[in-house]
Amino acid sequence: MSAPVLELRGLSKAFRVRHGFMGRETREIRAVNDVSLTIGRGEVYGLAGESGSGKSTIARMIMGLTEPTAGTILIDGAPVAHAGQRPVQMVFQNPGASLNPRRTVAQSITVPLAVQGVGAADSAARVAELLEMVELPRHFAGRYPHELSGGQKQRVAIARALATTPKLLILDEPTSALDVSVQAKVMDLLADLGRDLGLTYLFISHDLSLMRNFADRVGILYLGRIVETGTADQVFAAPSHAYSRLLIASVPVMSEDEARARPTIPLIDGEIPTAEALVAHEAKQLSQGSKA
């Protein structure tokens, strides 16, 4: 069997933050804590978690934008190279911010090609090919971001990420800035591209309904740790960790069927508990159960 496209072994990142009087004391915050996962070729791995769970820090470490404190990142079974030479690309959340407003579509797409040393003549053909892949007309090559809609901009960002034929594509909330009707089309495109080109995705999102319909396997991240992992079907049908259950139970849904399929969360003092409260509550019940 071939090596997985991505393997994380015990990946950790701690930040030192200053606090106290005049910031004289420092404290360590473990943004990512001993995360291990593997993503096979052609697989879509969904990483779900709320703000502060560490999902963006993991993406940044894989990209080489942040140095891990501990652990290793293997791509195709080999330790990763210097940041600029990793066969990994990323599609960011807000295409309005991730595209340079002063560059045309073609210029934006050719930046990663130039870094790889592809000549100008070759790159023009490649731009046309990439635009076709993301289902944009060829003449969009000369347009500026402000002439495009949000969905079109995100298609350009996807084309740019595909330009260097990366082994792994990190999708960081790729549709959270888009309307739902546009979101559906961009997600369809990503799924089609994934199948046609055999792409491997790390899909980061807080939208669990979206993840359910896109990811093959899912990892639930809570306070820097993966608290639950499994196939999307397993995790959504029978989440085992208290936090996963709270997260899935909190999703506003469209139908009775979905509402019934959601886990039920005990109300604490008549209110929906916070994650900390629920995790503490379950731990307490567990210890009481073991004593009994």
Binding site: A184, D192, S209, F214, V253
Partner: peptide, 19 residues
């Protein structure tokens, strides 16, 4: 609009073929 919203129970895999 309603059809564009993904469902928590799945069943509408993204992709234009077979989905």
């Amino acid at each position: 609009l309603m059809a564009a919203v993904p469902r928590l129970t799945g069943g509408h895999r993204y992709g234009t073929q077979g989905g």
